[in-house]
């Protein structure tokens, strides 16, 4: 197989006395969708945040395209082309969707005004609208704050932001949790499109049919460690659940 896009080795992360990750491994290849599954509190979100630079690991190694890297901040992750849809969405609710899409990457006015720090709000609004339309996020009033939008719309904004800017890896931490049937379909289609662009997509979800439908591979996390890896096709729901609950453990034999 090709070289992994991103590989985490023996990641340890503790919050005080809580050992969220106890030597977790994780691998994702370019052009594939990996589902990261596990019970509540297994450490999925913590692993994602570690790889997204939100909280650097206590120990362990991260390889990006084969090179060891330190992802010390969200900006560092972003420079590598890694984008994340956080479980808590991480939107500025009082700002409008376009402002959130461009947060930290604002489009500035041309010339002297731009250098003085003036925003090109009209351009951000215009491109934002276009982007949301393309990605199938239905927003009636694009000048209203995100706080006034439905949970699904907010999730749409967060997903749009991640896939707009990612060039290598997209982490999606339960991106369909608040979505209706149509919107869930939209996101799953979007995940496939992003994968077909050659990016690595990491999907966290508790919805097993969804996982089985869209994932090329599945990695199972339990109590802060990877306990199993499955290829698409040769896995059943029972096997996944077994690994999640500790009934089956076969990380060793997985390639």
């Amino acid at each position: 197989m090709a070289e992994p896009m991103l590989e985490a080795r023996e990641i340890v992360k503790s919050f005080g006395r809580v050992h969220a990750l106890r030597g977790a491994n994780f691998t994702v290849f370019p052009g594939e969708v990996v589902a990261l599954v596990g019970d509540n509190g297994a450490g999925k979100s913590t692993l994602v945040k570690t790889l997204a630079g939100v909280h650097p690991p206590d120990a362990g190694e991260i390889l990006f395209e084969g090179r060891p890297v330190h992802i010390a901040s969200p900006v560092a992750a972003r420079r590598l082309g890694i984008e994340t849809v956080y479980q808590d969405l991480a939107l500025a609710a009082e700002l409008d969707p376009a402002a959130n899409l461009y947060l930290g990457r604002e489009i500035m006015r041309g010339g002297v005004l731009g250098r003085l720090g003036f925003l090109d709000k009209a351009e951000m609004r215009r491109r934002g609208d276009q982007q949301f339309k393309e990605l199938g996020v239905a927003i009636q009033d694009t000048s209203a704050s995100v706080a006034t939008m439905s949970g699904g719309q907010r999730q749409g904004v967060a997903v749009s932001r991640a896939v707009t800017w990612a060039s290598k890896v997209v982490f999606m931490d339960e991106p369909t949790a608040a979505l209706g049937v149509v919107q869930t379909r939209n996101v799953l289609d979007l995940i496939r499109r992003v994968r077909d662009r050659g990016l690595a997509v990491v999907l966290i979800s508790h919805n097993m049919p969804e996982v089985l439908e869209v994932a090329d591979r599945i990695e199972v996390l339990r109590l802060g460690e990877r306990v199993a890896r499955f290829e698409r096709g040769d896995v059943t729901m029972e096997q996944i659940v077994g690994a999640m609950t500790g009934a089956i453990k076969h990380e060793e034999e997985a390639a």
């Binding site: 939100v54 991480a90 700002l95 930290g104 003036f118 925003l119 709000k121």
Partner: peptide, 24 residues
């Protein structure tokens, strides 16, 4: 109301953690 400085001011007040994760 018109500059990036102002936008970051609003963003931090709205959601400090989101601002931080957006690289501010």
């Amino acid at each position: 109301h018109a500059t990036r400085f102002g936008r970051y001011t609003f963003a931090i007040g709205s959601n400090e953690e989101a601002a931080r994760r957006a690289g501010i």
